[in-house]
Amino acid sequence: MRGRFSAEIVSEYVHRGQLSFYVHPDSIVKILTALRDEKSLRFDYLADICSVDHLRKKAKTNERYEVVYNIVSIPNSFRMFVRIRVSAEAQKIPTLCNEWPCANWLEREVWDMMGIEFKGHPNLTKIVTADDLEGHPLRKDFGIKYEIQHFTHTKDDPIEVVPDNPFH
């Protein structure tokens, strides 16, 4: 398999005994379906799709985002990660919805939280965040805002009553 896709595989990465391959974004569907259909491998269980924002170490790597596909071969009890690096925010990734229906919601969540778009997704809409929220919360440049509780009135600063207001 490694030889068959030598052109598409960018690099191999093993950390704490977990194997990952970095591949070219456009070939992701081809590689995952090949891994699924190969009789001896049978990586047919797509466990998860998640995304990482590397804004903090952007100086080192040029690509800011990373999408991680987490696939399991149930007969062989083996788990593997196929990763793609996404450089620009406008770059689109091919969708996996046609091969794995469970990718539908997972990709929607990636788009909603990280803002990575998927080409050919049937329904790429907001899924967990509120409708009026702008932006993608898991991006590093999306700051966390804490609500500061202001006391509207105290003994020295009593509540202001506007006489013209019909609600008072």
Partner: peptide, 21 residues
Amino acid sequence: DGSNIPNRVRVRPPSFVNLSA
């Protein structure tokens, strides 16, 4: 990323995927 806070924590939610079915 080597610091004392994680760069990214992703929870693989079983209920989320089961519900999508």
